[in-house]
Amino acid sequence: MTSDREQPAPEHRRPQGVADATVEAVGKLSEALETVEQARGHLYAFHQLMGRADRQLGSASQMLAESGHPEPAELLETAMVGRNVLEGRWTFQIVEEFDDGYWAELREHEKVVREALLAGRRHVYEAEMKEARRTKGRAGHEARPAPGQ
């Protein structure tokens, strides 16, 4: 008898009648979304790094003033501290615009396509790749976790 752990979970199985080309195409769409998710992470890293840099510029300006260099301190304070990184925008505004626009729309389109073509199932392409690559019956190669894991 085959244990449940030797079969992919139902939510990762290809719906009846779905062609290989469809699974591949939806897999490519999911891959594109994952790439955008990675880019979003870099955008958030940029946001945090620019915030840190702004605080460091403020500290540098203050240290210059305290060490007897008021002109360069004033220049940094007025020209760079608190400056927009893009026209009219700090990085939080860039992040919000990206999240509310491109990222949200792509996520919705990816979901609509999955709903229409794969009954909403996620990572069917990857689940099938796992099935093709794993050594069935070998510890550490189970199709899915034990119940309750």
Rank of each mutant, 00 (worst) to 15 (best):
M1F: 14
T2Q: 08
T2C: 05
T2P: 12
T2D: 12
S3H: 09
S3Y: 09
S3R: 07
R5C: 03
Q7T: 11
A9W: 10
P10Y: 05
P10D: 13
H12V: 00
P15A: 08
Q16F: 07
Q16R: 11
Q16H: 13
G17M: 09
G17R: 07
G17K: 05
G17L: 07
T22R: 02
V23N: 02
E24D: 15
A25N: 07
V26E: 01
K28N: 09
L29E: 04
E31T: 11
A32Q: 07
A32N: 04
A32H: 09
L33F: 08
L33S: 01
E34K: 11
T35G: 10
E37K: 08
Q38C: 04
A39W: 11
A39Y: 12
G41Q: 09
H42Y: 13
L43K: 01
L43M: 14
L43H: 01
Y44I: 08
A45I: 03
F46P: 00
H47C: 09
Q48K: 06
Q48E: 15
Q48P: 00
L49W: 05
M50F: 08
G51Q: 12
A53R: 06
R55G: 12
L57M: 14
Q62A: 12
M63T: 08
M63S: 13
A65C: 08
S67H: 15
H69E: 10
P70M: 04
P70G: 05
E71D: 15
P72I: 05
L75Y: 14
A79F: 08
M80C: 11
V81I: 15
V81N: 04
G82K: 06
G82M: 08
R83S: 10
N84M: 05
V85D: 01
V85S: 03
L86Y: 13
E87M: 09
R89Q: 14
W90M: 08
T91W: 01
T91C: 13
F92S: 13
F92E: 13
Q93T: 05
Q93C: 03
Q93H: 15
Q93N: 12
E96I: 02
E97P: 01
D99A: 14
D100N: 15
W103V: 06
A104G: 05
A104R: 15
A104Q: 14
L106D: 02
R107W: 02
E108P: 00
H109D: 10
H109K: 15
V112T: 14
V113G: 02
V113N: 00
L117Q: 06
L118K: 00
A119C: 12
A119F: 01
G120W: 03
R121P: 00
R121G: 00
V124C: 01
Y125F: 05
Y125T: 00
Y125P: 00
M129E: 14
K130A: 07
K130F: 07
K130R: 12
E131W: 02
E131M: 09
R138T: 10
A139K: 09
G140T: 07
G140M: 04
H141V: 04
E142I: 02
R144F: 04
P147N: 13
G148S: 10
Q149G: 04
